[in-house]
Structure formats: structure tokens, C-alpha cells
Design a protein around this nucleic acid. Sequence first.
DNA 1: TATGAATGAGGCTTCATTCAT
DNA 2: GATGAATGAAGCCTCATTCAT
Lengths: 207, 207, 207, 207
Amino acid sequence: MEKSKKRPSKLETPDREKEKISANREKILTTALTLFTSRGFFGTPTSLISKEAGVSTGTLFFYFKTKEELIDTLYRRIKEEAAKEMCRGIDKQKTTEAKIRRLGTNMVEWGIRNHAKLKFMEQFAHSPFVSTSAHEEGMSHFFFLGDLVKDGIREGAIRNIDPSLLFHMMAPALSGLVVQASEIENPAEREKIVQDGLDFIWNAMKA
Amino acid sequence: MEKSKKRPSKLETPDREKEKISANREKILTTALTLFTSRGFFGTPTSLISKEAGVSTGTLFFYFKTKEELIDTLYRRIKEEAAKEMCRGIDKQKTTEAKIRRLGTNMVEWGIRNHAKLKFMEQFAHSPFVSTSAHEEGMSHFFFLGDLVKDGIREGAIRNIDPSLLFHMMAPALSGLVVQASEIENPAEREKIVQDGLDFIWNAMKA
Amino acid sequence: MEKSKKRPSKLETPDREKEKISANREKILTTALTLFTSRGFFGTPTSLISKEAGVSTGTLFFYFKTKEELIDTLYRRIKEEAAKEMCRGIDKQKTTEAKIRRLGTNMVEWGIRNHAKLKFMEQFAHSPFVSTSAHEEGMSHFFFLGDLVKDGIREGAIRNIDPSLLFHMMAPALSGLVVQASEIENPAEREKIVQDGLDFIWNAMKA
Amino acid sequence: MEKSKKRPSKLETPDREKEKISANREKILTTALTLFTSRGFFGTPTSLISKEAGVSTGTLFFYFKTKEELIDTLYRRIKEEAAKEMCRGIDKQKTTEAKIRRLGTNMVEWGIRNHAKLKFMEQFAHSPFVSTSAHEEGMSHFFFLGDLVKDGIREGAIRNIDPSLLFHMMAPALSGLVVQASEIENPAEREKIVQDGLDFIWNAMKA
DNA sequence: TATGAATGAGGCTTCATTCAT
DNA sequence: GATGAATGAAGCCTCATTCAT
């Protein structure tokens, strides 16, 4: 209704204002991540988040207008980070198979280093607590996957089936692999699992 | 005044009376199923369930001691039904591949006829709202799958990888297929999708 | 969104269901009346109302969906009662002057017997806390006043000025009289004030 | 660093410094006036006032220790202004009637030019949000009215009734007139209404 | 003077659950 | 079996006010 007259930002603050940085804001996000994954969205009162984060209720609602906005922010961030991590080094791979395998490895490695984030994504991937717009934004980061698949089909490396179907079967399978792999401590064993899993996926889709 | 006229216990339903039958009870379960899938567990107050079911709050809590017990009952029922449906006619199939394919077709057909139940399973498969015991009981109905896989590996029909990993990649992939297929109206198109999906899965696991 | 399927009311309950009678409901209304007049709308937390009424928070919100609905109900009731009281015996008066005087006397007497209600009306007559619809309903009970004035003008008993203007000057003047009169204990003195006040009003409007 | 350069105290504003002058302070007062009249006291958070005034929360509380002090200041100012306006040119009128009529005209004209202030006075005239002391100070500006009435009675121009009663009936009637008149755009029509209204009032009180 | 992040008490409302009828 | 009024803990969020910069 009323537009905030956005005072001209001082020179010191460059214009990437979208994501203000603030120690408290970050503490809240980190704490919320942990709590949401371990207790669920409704199982985590905002009062608990602020207490655990060491700030007051007021502070939480100063940074996030609603509880939903908090989870949305978290969701967007993590999806973006995951997507970025996923495609790391993919363009250096020559074959489609190599790309797919690299992508899987990336995901597994990220999942192991970021257990909480992985669980968060698993839990809220289809959750109604996350706004549609956040879901869409989150999804958008993975569009490159669709392209990769289409290219693979065109080149004859991937079986010619509906890319959407392929995506909706491959993604949860990969997800399952990451979860299984990330639960294994021993690096050698884990490597074995990951390779088996990637075989599974690649066999499923290869032409 | 006369208490418990010792109801004639039919042979099929011995008196472990876990599942009392009553019109109101059923109405509550049916209503809850729809509401839970469309609004989520916390988004569905018990008062709404009872109102929509046309009974009083008291009645709901007469049949189910807590809200959790209601969702547990629902979960157990549906998992059991899904498992029963899944293995229908499997023993008549000769090869492992045929069995796997039959199983997939069963699931898809059931998913189409029982959209609400499918969504319910998707939503609450990993949900903390469902008690651990219900989750375990639900899972137990699918043990036969593990056996099927192990047999397949022993026979050399299925690739020799950790059955648990295989299960945790195959199950969500199948799930994805059912969801995708059940969203397609045209039977011919759907059949195509299903076959492609089953190819995907079988290629993934075959030796 | 969803219409309550209004079960067929049992024979014992005649169909004037609009205003359910319930000891608790009445206690809440009475308590709220007192508190609102002495502390204002925002100065009176719902928790205080329920505490003073001797019921739980839940009970208050069982009978009134929101705090606003509570004040609305109160407002409608009191306006209706006041209007009913105001026109008591007016049709028995022959002249317009007699009618106006009778009406004034009625108001004063009612105001003295119902001090809290009088203050409530004074305070919330133009208040934004009361919904527009309640304001309109409340006003509607006083339409007969407009008719009375118009009749008076037609008959030549009242000066020919815009009835709306007349109403908006007479009403608050009468209101002022009631308040002033109701603060006087001694009946004789009070009677004097009332007569002076009515003279004031009648002289103002008479042709 | 140099503190209080001992501002040159103009003769008109001796240093009782009750009313500091500052652009920001004035902006806050103006904004608050508008917001309070359109949204009420409790409906207007201090944060909204400061935002709309284009200053920070801190600044608002620098000039006004509390929210109540803000409304008090506003109330005192407006009452004083209204009273000053009301008696403009009254001493030049010879008869009591002329004085009363002049006073009414003054009020109406001021009310039209200062709609927000008029509404503010209407709304907070009996409000508990305004401190008693502010109410008393505000009232004191209108004492001259009491004197005018008493004089009128002594001279036989005004009917001999309790001046307090008269005041409490006349004031709201006049108030009603101002509101009604100020809602009319057309100057000629308005003039008509004002004259009718003043007739109403004068007839009410004349001997 | 001016800023705006930080505070925390307190307000309104929801909802699972009980129990007398 | 069935009803629905009653309960009260707990949740989300607002907002006046402070204070370090």
C-alpha cells in the first residue's frame, strides 16, 4: 500500500541489499535450519528459535515478518546453494555420462558436508509450509538439469523418454542415494555405494 | 443396560478388535484422509474433521484417543492396502523382470484409483506426525520386496548391489512414476509413460 | 466458505436461535459492558473479560469468534434496547411537542437506570471498533425519530429545516441532557434539569 | 561539539520552552494528526507515524517521551487554536445573540478549513487516551463561553437555566452543526445550513 | 540531533482434549 | 454411543520504548 521511500544507500553499502547481512539474522537462520530439520515446521515455535539463537522474539520478527518468511528464506538459500554446488565442474566433463556422474558425486559430497541442509531439502521439498513462489524459485535453479537431459537425448546418449518423467524419477533416486551414502562413515564403503548408485542411475537412463 | 451382548465374532475378524467397525468411525477416517492430504496434518483441526464428517468433537475422540492415533490408523490402513495391492498376481509371474513390472503396474493402477491415498502416503511417508511404530508396521508390509530383490540378485537377474540401497533408490523412483502417470488422463498416453517408467526402473536394476 | 449444515433444531428449541441464551454468554456480555465503559475497548484485554466473568479464555472465544464480535453484539443489543425504551408510550401522545418531551423523559429515565449502557453508547457511538454493519443496524432502530420529525414539520409544529441537520443537532443535545441529568442524585433537582433541558430542545426545534 | 549556543530567545517565545520548534517535530505532529483521525489512537503505531513522517523511531521518542505525550501535545494545541479561532471578533459584537452567532460561524469556518483537526477534536474530546491535565487545559480555553452565557442570562437575553447544562447541550449541538456543515461543498447551501443551525441553537437558549 | 536494531511484555486467538448430560 | 460446552496451555505476532553509535 505504501512504498518505503528507500533512502539513498550510503556509499559504503553496495547495492546488493536484498540479503542484508547481520550477525543476528544469520544466527536466526542457522538455528532455524537445525530446529526445523529435527522438529519440523510446526514442531518448532518461533519462541524456541529466538531463544536458541540467543535473541529476543522481537528481533526474530524484525528480520522476518512471519514464520513463513523465515522458512521461505531458508528454502531459497539452500536450494540455490545446492544447485550451485551440483553443477560445479560439470562443463569440464565431455560426455553426458561423465556429467551425470559428476553431478551425482557433487550432490553426495555436498550432502555429507551439509547434513542439516540436506535433511531440510528432503523435508520441505513438497511442503505446503513453503510458499509457492519459493518453491518455484527453488526449482528454477535446477532447470539446467532439464537441458542436460534434453541434450543427452538429442545426442543419443540418453534414452528417448519424456524428460519430465525422467527428471521425476531420477531426482528422487539420486536423493535416495545421497541420503543412503551420507549415512555411511567409512569413506571407502561410501565410495562403493556412491559408484553403485550412480551405476543404477546411469543404467536407468542411458540409451 | 445389557452390556456387550458378546457380538458374534466372524471368523475373518477375530476379536483382537483392533479395528472396530462403525459408520461414524469410517466417516471420520474418510474425511480425515481427504482433509489431511489437502491441508496437511497441522492444517487440519480435529474440529474441522468432525464437522465435515457430520459428527461431534466428542465422537471423534471416542473413536480415537488422540489426533495422532487417528493419523496412525489411517497410515497403517493405507500402507497395508497399498502393499496388498502391490503384490497382487506377482506369484503368477515367472521371471524377476515380469514380477517387477507387474508390481509397478499394480502400483500405478492403484494410485490412479486412489488419488487421495496416494497423496497421503507421499506426504506422510517420512512425517514425524506418524508414530514410529506405525511407520515400522507400514514398512513391514513391503518386506516381500526385499526378498524379491535378494532372490533376483541370487538368480543373477538383478545387479549385485546392496539391497537396501537398491530399495531406497527404486522405491522413490517408482513413487515418482506413479505420481506422474496418475496425472495423465488419456489411457493410451498413460500406458506409454508407465512402460517407459518401468523400463527406466528395470534397466536401473537388471544385471 | 463452508456453510454449517445447521442440523434440524429439536422441537424444544423454537427458531429464534439468533441469540442463544447461556449463562456464560450472558456473564461475558455483562462483564464486557462494564469493563469496556470503564477502561475502553483497547484497554480491556479479552483475558481480563474472561477472568472477571469467571470463565476460561476458550469459553469467551467459543461464544464470540473475535473481540470485535463481542463489542458488536453488545452494541446491537444496547442500541436496540435504548430505541425500544425511547419510543415507549409515544404513540399515546397527541401533539408533536408531547411526543418529543416523552421521548426525552424516556431516555433520561433509562439512562439513569442503565448508567453503564448509557456510557457505553456515548463512548462507542462513533467508534471504529464497532463494525459498520453494527452501526447501521443500531442506527436503524432510530429511524422512527426521523419520521416523527418529518411529520412534525409537515404539521407545522416543527421548524422547517433539514431533518438530517435537526437530527444531528438534537440527538447529541439530548444525549448531553441525559448525561447531565443522570449525574444528579436528588430526584426533584433532576426533574428540574430534565424539564429545562426539554425546554431547550423543544424551543430549538419548534416552529 | 559546542553545546547550546544559547538560542536567541525571541520576545514572543520566552524560554519556558514548552514548545520547542523543529522541522522534524512539526512533521511528526502533522503526520500524527492525520493518522490518529483516520485510524484512531491504538490503530496508529508510533512506528507508522515516524515512517510516514520520514523520521526514525528514535527521533519520535526524542521529541515526545511517550506516545501519550504526543497525543497530549496535539490535543492541547488544537483545543487552543480552536478556542482562539472561536472568539475571534466576538468582542466587536454588541448583542448576546450576535456574539453567539458569530461564534458559531467562526467554528464552522474553522472546521471547514481544518477538517482533520475537527475530526481529531470530535474523536478525542472524551477519550481516556488524553491525559486529564490536557483535558483540563483544553477545557480552560473555553471558559469564556461560560462567562458569555452567564452575562447573557444576567442581561435577560438567555433563558435562565443552569449554565453547565446549557453548555453541555449547546456545545455538542454546535459540534453537530459544524460536522454537518463541513460535509457540504456548495458554499450557498452550506451558508443556509449554518444559518438554520444557528437559529436552532439561538432559539434553544434565548430567553 | 538522528538513527534503527534490539527488547520483551502482553495481546488475540487456536485447538486438542475432557466430561457431564 | 453421541453431544457440545468448557478448558487452558501455547502459538504467533505487535509495538512502545531504549540505547549504542
